[in-house]
Design a protein around this nucleic acid. Structure first.
Lengths: 338, 338
DNA sequence: TTTGACTGTGACACCGGTGTCATAATATTT
DNA sequence: AAATATTATGACACCGGTGTCACAGTCAAA
């Protein structure tokens, strides 16, 4: 019942620690016979290397940190799912670090995180990938990082995003194709680059059909359900009332739906509602929300996989990639009532 | 820009490593003058100890693992929030480990987790706290653990739960007080002890008012939204249709609400719906769900705090505690229509 | 047969802390 | 003042791995 270490394996197999280490790491220059012998002892003693000792020797922790501050819990869950998938495939662990700081405090908070846990790399989820000070700080400290769903940077960092502008364009086009001309828009959190992108897509679709942009139809949200309620109130109070609302995420869209229903409006007959993200809530409510499905899990998994590759093989060229999103139509949008 | 280690601090301060270590750990037997001097060097060199090295020496990782397999994502989010709060207060990190295995495979999966990450302790969230083989395994391996929302065991382990039976009793009483006599019930996942507890509370309330228990009104769910849809279908097809439905969690209740609305039933006029947990969705939909609020974050925080205390001071007596839940009435329940 | 290149192996230092123990310095008791 | 107890400090081994380098053995080329 004693602890099995590299030393016990070495003495059992009658070889040196270093040779055991070579077998462990699949290093060359070990004869087939020796390798067999050591592997047999691994089995016999049920040996597994101590990752902490390994970490100390190599100055690695085998831990990836995930930094987030997002009002949408389901988004975080999806990010975690993707990150975990990548970690498990590579024998890494995932440390989660919610963080609400900004500016100076953010930097020192992250600095402390790095000092107390010696992360091998860090995933920046929205909005952190869009904070230049943070990106510069990590670059200066030589901490590998990957950005998820952030704006494109003209550098060599790892970044995986989806095409928010195009998604917003398509869903707005969808509404327009149903005859809507007065389409309200609820913006997301101003810190998130997706917020600008989605707004741009909305405006491009309007322009594409020569629908005049009307500033009164635009509300400032922050991706939270609560902000959706506030925005919905303003929008539903407008006169004339818009025939459709496009909210920058599904939580806010759900808020619009709730308020509209509370006010005895029929959705989609009296007003169409569209969201973004394809969060679980989009199909948990009635009517189901028309929305844009983003491959959040896939994006994060790709980002973390690349991050781990980069940690193990720093010479490999990192790449930035943009995944496609797709329109999902449900019951919350319909042809405008004449 | 060199790395600052305990050695550099020691030579800078003109003392031995060990003395620096003493200052670091607030050990006694260091003169005030020496302590001052060392602390000054800490500041000057901006020193922070390497947790990996410390971990190797003490055979600790400063990491708590959180084991989960729960169809309700929002529940996990809340668990994480509570666990993180406790970890941050104690300079621990949280490693998340979703795991869908059962029986033998579960044990070997957890064994591997422990081997590859040397967790200092582990939080068992539902349903894992109710798996005797797992509890025995961890006890045998002497891995400290805490159970959240699991059944009471007659031992000295750490456990924090809420009173599911009482909560279910109260919400059923609430429905009965509104005149309902035909109340359908949707069970949760059979692996979760809460499932039995909530069912017991439901039956106790019925018995309390001499309402005969009718097996046809009971559906097997598993806490997922999808299972709620299936159960809802059976229930709404019953004739006569029950006047109320009590689902064992809010996701399943939301599914009932969606299906009922889809079928043109008015909630709560035609049918009352009650849930459990007070998940975000309970207030994101219309009508809002009457439900039982459980202090999930608080429970988990308490459990993890106690777990960390137990790791640091193993002599302290662990305790089991049951927190209270409370009824939240919203729009989804109303007096039965005569 | 000698030379040089290459393969397989182990000794040993090192990563950055902590634990043990001996000893020097100081305080207390007799 | 001497004997004893207490406090402060450092030397050194240790945690369990990896990196460096020296060296013996093997094999092909000269």
């Amino acid at each position: 019942m004693k602890k099995v270490t590299i030393n016990s394996v070495a003495s059992h197999a009658g070889v040196s620690k270093k040779t055991v280490s070579r077998v462990l790491n699949n290093e060359p220059n070990v004869s087939a016979a020796t390798r067999e012998k050591v592997l047999a002892v691994f089995k016999e003693l049920d040996y597994t290397p101590n990752p902490i000792a390994r970490g100390l020797a190599q100055n690695r922790s085998f831990i990836i940190g995930c930094l987030y501050d997002n009002p949408s819990k389901s988004y975080i869950t999806r990010v975690q799912t993707g990150a975990l998938a990548a970690c498990q495939e590579n024998n890494y662990n995932l440390l989660i670090h919610p963080c609400e700081y900004r500016g100076e405090a953010l930097i020192s908070n992250v600095e402390q995180l790095l000092q107390t846990s010696r992360l091998d790399g860090i995933v920046l989820t929205p909005p952190f990938g869009d904070f230049p000070e943070l990106v510069e700080f990590l670059t200066a400290k030589k901490i590998p990082f990957a950005r998820v769903a952030s704006a494109i940077l003209q550098d060599e960092s790892i970044s995986v995003r989806s095409n928010d502008e195009q998604g917003a364009f398509e869903i707005t086009e969808h509404l327009i194709s149903l005859g809507h001309k007065s389409i309200a828009f609820i913006k997301g959190h101003p810190d998130h680059s997706a917020t600008q992108q989605r707004f741009k897509g909305y405006r491009r679709a309007l322009a594409n059909h020569n629908i005049e942009f009307d500033e009164r139809l635009v509300e400032e949200g922050n991706f939270s359900y609560h902000s959706g309620v506030d925005s919905a109130r303003s929008i539903l109070d407008l006169s004339p009332r818009p025939t459709a609302v496009f909210a920058s995420n599904d939580y806010m869209a759900a808020a619009v739906l709730k308020l509209a229903t509370q006010r005895q409006l029929r959705v989609p007959d009296d007003i169409s509602i569209a969201g973004f993200d394809n969060a679980p809530i989009a199909r948990h409510i009635w009517p189901g929300l028309t929305t844009i499905a983003q491959p959040v899990e896939e994006m994060t998994k790709l980002a973390v996989t690349q991050l781990i590759n980069h940690i193990t093989e720093p010479q490999e060229q990192p790449f930035q990639i943009t995944l496609e999103s797709r329109l999902i139509t449900r019951e919350s949008t319909a042809r405008v009532n004449p």
